[in-house]
Design a binder for these strands. Structure first.
Length: 597
RNA sequence: GGUUGUAUAGCUCAAUUGGAUAGAGCAUCUGACUACGAAUCAGAAGGUUUAAGGUUCGACUCCUUAUACGACCA
């Protein structure tokens, strides 16, 4: 694509010189793909040239187009609609472009001049409850953004900061001590994260009852919340934890171990991975050191009660608490430590935090605070802020039992894929393991595509019925398009058809062919744009576009039934390239492709 | 109260960053399988882009004000 666009731009400059004796300013020399309803493949907008050239937009378009048609071999024809010059490209140019595509291997890096060493932090779960739908959007986004950045040639580290300490963990532990009766994941027949989550819910339930009880005795709600025995116990446990109490630590290790086993199973199931785990329990002390450093430098200050604050009013933010009066840390304390650890470990020039948009303010504070400390990595911090996932019934609330559990959801989409596959009845000869793998590929593919196709920064609605849809703008639609190309390649191999490598002998192209080539050539653009904006949605849209174009090509021209052997092997090659592009593009979203479905 | 985000077809989302007649999918209607795989393709219908002003050759996009919903900070 780069080369063809360059050819056209050079030709346009020559045309402008020849007809108007002037250059087209670089800012105006932007070619955009021609809209569907008009003839042509590339469009130059001529409105901006009217002043410089002293002519009307249509006159300019006519003059440039006429010159190009006569003098530029790449341009086969043109048409002018108002201020738009649409250029039709000669088949030979499309073939040359296809030759370039064939020469560049699948997944070749797309250099963008963006950051080279990147840390993407995502997932970052709490160890007191299992993953839910909201985490899925986070995990899919983080994984995908990391893959997209890798595709630009960057060295990317996927990091997971586990929130493994704090009062919420103690709540689960207290409830387990009281009601657990020594249960283990094995004895309970539950994944470890679900087991821990069960006790967290139990804590909340009994805690609410205690509050009610106290209120009945005439205590105000506010006081009751603080004085409920369960809460006092939990706080006592937190202090013991900070003091390193042996018994508490043993229980903490034991329960967290269960939870990690559960998380790892979920991660494996949804196909995300990490290069590095950080634990809040291992970073909050370093964070406290940074607070001390800030005090020593005089950029933080202490209030009379001993709490430590940073004043960010000059940055348009407020005063922010960094350390409580009793010396215990708050959320941001450990963030200061973690940022530094990550920098020590990986020396990033970009550090991406995949965190929901409710933390926008928090992330601004973190960055501003690091700047105050004069940390060189403060500028490298980027918050990939994404919107919440809503359910048709409203917001997810664990307290009201309206959470969608991640493991459950995956099971459901697999079931839907299974039902649809059995109905189609096209999978004869596949083993049970292969079938299970297929249902998983399709189900998770549908789910990932559904969550990733929406612009990350937008709040989105999760419709359970739509998420398991397999037709239309969905993951399986694109996977199906791939499966067809795969079948073509298998049959071609069996019948001894060899994909063309020397394209110069092909003469005329069908519209569906040149269009597909143009779409395939857009891969680099899509990756560059997605990397710049940290938006997998752009990749999802591109994948959909490729699949559509590939389907049209499949429908409109014969591939294996073509009688001309040269054309046949050209089309086999084009189909193969389309399949390959779909595979690498979906790969950037963490979606796999089936050879059959 | 302060800061901030969002508002596009019945529903869920796009719109190449200021360009053409605002596009897809779902749902509705019509057509195409003795055709390389119909999980597909072709088509119809569906819009005062929340409202009112402004900027200019040109606005869903930028500016002002208002309204609605959300998030965060006291």
């Amino acid at each position: 694509m780069q080369q063809l666009e360059q050819t056209l731009k050079t030709a346009l400059q020559a045309a402008a010189q020849a007809t108007f004796g002037q250059e087209i300013p670089a800012a105006s020399l932007v070619l955009q793909p021609t809209r569907k309803d008009f003839a042509g493949s590339f469009t130059l907008v001529t409105f901006p040239l009217t002043k410089a050239f002293g002519k009307g937009p249509e006159q300019i378009g006519q003059a440039l187009g006429e010159w190009l048609k006569a003098n530029a071999p790449a341009v086969r024809g043109y048409n002018v609609v108002k201020g738009f010059l649409n250029l039709e490209i000669a088949d030979a140019e499309w073939l040359k472009l296809f030759g370039e595509l064939l020469a560049s291997p699948a997944g070749a890096p797309v250099p963008t001049g963006g950051p080279q060493r990147v840390v993407v932090e995502y997932s970052s779960p709490n160890t007191n409850k299992p993953l839910h739908l909201g985490h899925l959007r986070n995990n899919f986004l983080g994984y995908s953004v990391a893959e997209i950045l890798k595709a630009t040639g960057a060295t990317v580290t996927k990091a997971n900061l586990v929130n493994d300490r704090g009062i919420h963990i103690c709540k689960s532990m207290i409830a387990y001590q009281r009601f657990g009766e020594g249960a283990t994941p094995e004895s309970a027949g539950l994944k470890g994260d679900h087991l821990a989550g069960k006790y967290y819910v139990l804590f909340e339930k009994h805690y609410r009852e205690e509050i009610k009880q106290l209120e009945a005795e005439g205590v105000t709600n506010e006081v009751a919340k603080k004085q409920a025995p369960l809460m006092l116990e939990a706080q006592e446990m937190l202090q013991k934890w900070e003091a390193g109490d042996e018994e508490v630590m043993a229980l903490w290790h034991r329960m967290n171990g269960w939870v990690y086993d559960g998380f790892n199973a979920t991660y494996a199931n949804i196909g995300v991975d990490f290069d590095k785990f950080y634990y809040e329990s291992g970073t909050y002390l370093l964070g406290k050191e940074r607070v001390e450093e800030g005090l020593a430098k005089g950029v933080f200050f202490k209030k009379e009660n001993g709490s430590v604050w940073v004043d960010l009013q000059a940055e348009g933010l407020d005063e922010k608490l960094l350390l409580r009066a009793d010396g215990t840390s708050v959320y941001i304390t450990q963030d200061l430590g973690t940022a530094e650890l990550k920098y020590q470990d990986f020396g990033y020039d970009s550090s991406i935090y995949v965190i929901a948009d409710e933390q926008n303010y928090h992330m601004q504070v973190l960055q501003a605070t690091l700047k105050k400390l004069g940390k060189p990595y403060a500028e490298a911090i980027h918050h990939l802020s994404y919107g919440m996932v809503d359910l048709p019934s409203g917001k997810m609330k664990s307290r009201e039992g309206t959470v969608v559990d991640a493991d459950e959801l995956v099971k459901e989409v697999e079931e839907a894929a299974k039902a649809a596959t059995l109905e189609k009845g096209k999978t004869e000869g596949l083993s049970d393991e292969e079938l299970a793998q297929l249902y998983h590929t399709l189900g998770v593919g549908a789910l990932k595509y559904y969550l990733l196709k929406v612009d990350p920064k937008k709040r989105m609605l999760f419709n359970p019925e739509e998420s398991v849809q397999l037709t239309g703008d969905t993951g399986p639609f694109i996977q199906y398009s791939y499966a067809r190309t795969s079948k073509i390649q298998r049959t071609a191999k069996e019948t001894g058809v060899v994909a063309l490598t020397e394209i110069s002998e092909i003469s005329a192209l069908e519209p569906a062919e040149s269009e597909l080539i143009q779409v395939l050539a857009g891969y680099a653009n899509a990756v560059a744009e997605a990397a710049k904006t940290l938006s997998p949605a752009i990749i999802a849209q591109y994948a959909y576009e490729v699949a559509k174009s590939n389907n049209r090509f499949y429908k409109e021209v014969s591939i294996l039934k073509e009688s001309d052997p040269l054309k046949k092997s050209f089309r086999v090659a084009l189909s193969a390239k389309a399949g390959e592009t779909i595979k690498t593009t979906l790969g950037l979203l963490g979606i796999e492709v089936p050879e059959r479905m």
